[in-house]
């Protein structure tokens, strides 16, 4: 699971109002190199919750993202390559996503988060 996906996932339990971002408990992270596409990063930037990305990256051991970011930084190759690395190259392979409101744990196995709910949570 890439941090792009983490940035798009919220706790889906019935009644939860503040289900984003999910906290991350790490067992295993892998890095996989992929091509950098500046246009993709520039257009995704406004869709990404930056704070959640910074925290998520930090919690899986990558602290090279600036705390604050604004669109003017998208002109910098250095910034783009850090953003790219955090968003697309780091994968949470094994671990747990935790609902910030209820503490419900969603396991991630082989890179696949399990967001399936029990009947009483829907």
């Amino acid at each position: 699971m890439r941090l792009l996906t983490h940035n798009m996932l919220s706790s889906n339990i019935k009644g939860v109002t503040n289900g984003f971002p999910l906290r991350i408990e790490v067992e295993k992270v892998v890095e996989k190199e992929v091509d950098l596409n500046p246009d993709f990063l520039r257009s995704m930037f406004s869709k990404i919750d930056w704070k959640a990305l910074v925290h998520a990256a930090r919690s899986i051991g990558y602290s090279e993202l600036p705390d604050e970011a604004d669109p003017s930084m998208l002109d910098s190759d250095d910034f783009l390559s850090r953003f790219h690395h955090a968003l697309l190259q780091l994968h949470l392979e094994e671990g747990v996503l935790i609902c910030p409101e209820t503490g419900r744990r969603f396991p991630v196995n082989k890179g696949i988060p399990n967001m399936l709910l029990h009947e009483d949570e829907v």
Partner: peptide, 13 residues
């Protein structure tokens, strides 16, 4: 890949 009902968990963001 996400194990979920339709797009549950993704619908907000």
């Amino acid at each position: 890949l996400i194990s979920t009902d339709i797009a549950s968990g993704l619908e907000k963001r």
